[in-house]
């Protein structure tokens, strides 16, 4: 029965995805990109579709699914539901990489930016995870807090460098998440690589989430899988940051919401997770394009507002559930005598 429900949920998500996909293609300042015009072979319509609308939609799909997967893997590796690339300094380090690439090589070429961003965010996440593993934190909630401080530190270094070398204008561009950056979409296609890797290794990532001893028992090379996970996270952070800028909350709320709908078995939920993330960003993007049509807002703003509200709901629900489960466990103690559990035949 459970599987049926899951299948229905997935079907719903796919239908929603198709609807939003075409809506996203349809919206834009030029209104003649319609299905009929395309069928008629209208050249202008086809040009707009192929050079602007489709890349943008693909960018949304890749960035959203990539960031959701990166968040999921990060949460699985750290066994902490409040971790994500943006709460571990990965995104900030990518920004630092881009600024340094610009200062040292004075280039804005996508590939070099991405390579720099990748190296910086990989080193930064490696540093962060190894430091976090050494210090014993009393409560897991402190880890993302430390991560955010660490991210803030990196950001301030970035700002300092940008200020010193007089490239503050770069800061503004890269810190503004938007799918309207014409021409820099190229790098987003890199995300396909970590996505495929993540799907292939999904069962290993679910086992990693159960702890080091557990993974070793099942014959998994724990360190290698963790490293692979960090590479995936760094690649996604770098490519998405270069191409569309920061998309806050995606890596944090999408894995959490998916987990509460579908559970934590990554192997089974990774596709649902991607669909969920994509649909979420589609909705946010469509809203930010329609709200002051024909202009558009920065999508990171919309995501921040909607994501922030959802995150608050999630946190509050979590607290409520905790209180409830405490009451329930008290009830359980009382009603244990009436427990009708199947008895194991003793022999």
């Amino acid at each position: 029965m459970r599987q049926n429900i899951l299948k229905n949920k997935r079907l719903l998500m796919i239908v929603l995805f198709i609807l939003l996909f075409f809506t996203s293609l349809r919206i834009g300042a030029v209104s003649n990109v319609t299905f009929i015009n395309l069928l008629k072979g209208n050249k202008l319509a086809w040009t707009i579709l192929m050079s602007s609308r489709l890349p943008r939609t693909l960018a949304i799909i890749l960035a959203a699914s990539g960031l959701s997967v990166a968040g999921l893997i990060m949460q699985s590796i750290s066994r902490n539901k409040f971790m994500s690339p943006s709460t571990a300094g990965a995104t900030n380090a990518a920004g630092l990489g881009i600024i340094i690439a610009f200062i040292t090589l004075s280039t804005q070429s996508g590939i070099i930016q991405t390579i720099f961003a990748f190296c910086f965010s990989l080193v930064s996440t490696l540093l962060f995870t190894s430091v976090i593993n050494r210090i014993h934190v009393r409560d897991v909630v402190y880890i993302p807090l430390i991560g955010m401080m660490y991210g803030g530190l990196i950001s301030s270094i970035t700002t300092l460098l940008a200020y010193q070398f007089d490239v503050m204008h770069m800061m503004q561009t890269i810190n503004n998440g938007s799918f309207a950056r014409v021409g820099s979409y190229g790098m987003i296609y890199i995300i396909a690589i970590p996505l495929i890797l993540a799907v292939i290794y999904s069962s290993k990532f679910s086992i990693i989430g159960l702890g080091e001893d557990f993974s070793k028992n099942l014959g998994l090379n724990y360190n290698r899988v963790v490293f692979l996970g960090l590479v995936i996270i760094a690649l996604v952070s770098a490519a998405s940051f270069t191409a569309v800028g920061p998309l806050p909350f995606i890596g944090l709320i999408i894995p959490n919401m998916t987990a509460s709908f579908y559970g934590d078995n990554i192997k089974k939920t990774i596709i649902d997770l991607m669909l969920f993330g994509i649909n979420f960003v589609f909705v946010c993007d469509i809203i930010s394009r329609l709200i002051i049509f024909p202009f558009e807002m920065s999508v990171s703003l919309t995501i921040s507002i909607i994501g922030g509200v959802i995150f608050m709901f999630y946190v509050i629900a979590n607290i409520k559930r905790k209180n409830k489960s405490q009451i329930q466990s008290n009830d359980k103690l009382i009603s244990r005598k009436n427990d009708k559990e199947p008895q194991i035949a003793h022999d």
Partner: peptide
């Protein structure tokens, strides 16, 4: 090892499936 709460939403069937990992690789 000692199995306190694992803090993840995994069903019994899924947990048992993990046990097959060394044989089938997922």
């Amino acid at each position: 090892k000692q199995t306190q709460s694992i803090g993840l939403k995994v069903t019994i069937a899924e947990l048992v499936e993990f046990g097959r990992f060394p044989h089938c690789g997922g």
